[in-house]
Amino acid sequence: MITVPSGRVTVSHRGARRSWSVDVAPYELAASPVTQAQYAEITGQRPSTAHGDRLPVEGVSWFDALRFCNTLSRLEGLAPAYRIDADDVEWGTSADGYRLPTEAEWEHACRAGTIDARYGPLDDIAWYRGNSDERVHEVGGKQPNAWGLHDMLGNVWEWCWDMHDVEVKGIYRVLRGGGWFDEHWSCRASVRRRSHPTFRIDDVGFRIARSPSP
C-alpha cells in the first residue's frame, strides 16, 4: 500500500457535460491491481479467463470486489468497510478496513500531482490495444507514476466505489483506467466508463484502498 497525499481533483462527466471539484484526504492505495494469486489466497476462487498468478484478477464484479475487501479486512483484524445485504450496500466511512477507491481518489492517484492526461508516454506506462497483443499482462511490467503506482492506465479497467450517474443510469458503477483491449484515447486519467455492479468482464479488475486509522 502506498500513502497518497491529500489534494483536489476535478472530475469530468463528458456525457452529461458537467464537472465537479473534489477535495481528497490522504489515504492508502495498492501499488498494483489485485492479482489472481492474491484473490485466490483470500477467496479460494480463480474467476479469471486468462491464468497466471501475477496477472491482475479480472472477471470480477463490483460486488465481488467489495466482498474481497471485507474478507481481507477481517483476516487482518480490521473493521470491514462495507455492509452488504443482497443488492443493498452501505459504506462505513469511519472503518479502517480495505475498500475500493472513490473515482476522485483514483484520478488524483493516477495523475500523481500532474495535470496531464497521462503520467508518461503511453507505451512506457500502459498495456493497451497498440502494444498488448490483445491480452492481459502481469502487473508491474510498465513504469509506475511519480507516486509509485503501476498500471493506473491500461491492462485492466478498475472498479471504483461511485455510481456513474444516479439520475440516468441508476446503480451502474464507475470504471477507470482503460484496459488491454482499448485504443489509446481510453487510457487517460479523466476517462470514465460504467458497468452494472453484477457484471463480470474479462478486462475489468480492481485495486484496494484504505483510509488511515482515526
Rank of each mutant, 00 (worst) to 15 (best):
P80M: 15
A81S: 08
A81F: 00
Y82F: 08
Y82T: 08
Y82K: 02
Y82D: 05
I84Y: 12
I84A: 09
I84P: 05
I84G: 10
D85L: 12
A86C: 11
A86L: 12
A86E: 11
A86M: 09
D87N: 13
D87F: 10
D87I: 02
D88Q: 10
D88V: 10
V89M: 10
E90S: 15
W91R: 15
W91F: 12
G92I: 07
G92A: 13
G92F: 10
T93V: 06
T93Y: 14
T93I: 04
T93R: 15
S94W: 06
S94D: 14
S94Q: 12
S94Y: 06
A95S: 10
A95F: 01
D96T: 02
G97P: 01
G97F: 03
Y98N: 01
Y98H: 08
R99T: 02
R99A: 07
L100F: 01
P101W: 02
P101H: 04
T102E: 05
E103C: 06
A104C: 04
A104E: 07
A104T: 03
E105L: 00
E105M: 00
E105R: 01
E107L: 01
E107Y: 02
E107M: 00
E107V: 00
E107I: 00
H108S: 02
H108N: 06
H108T: 02
H108M: 03
C110G: 08
A112W: 06
A112C: 04
T114V: 07
T114H: 09
T114F: 10
T114S: 15
D116F: 10
D116Y: 13
R118K: 14
G120N: 14
P121A: 15
L122C: 05
L122K: 08
D123W: 08
D123V: 05
D123R: 11
D124I: 00
D124R: 14
I125Q: 06
A126W: 04
W127K: 05
Y128D: 07
Y128C: 03
Y128Q: 05
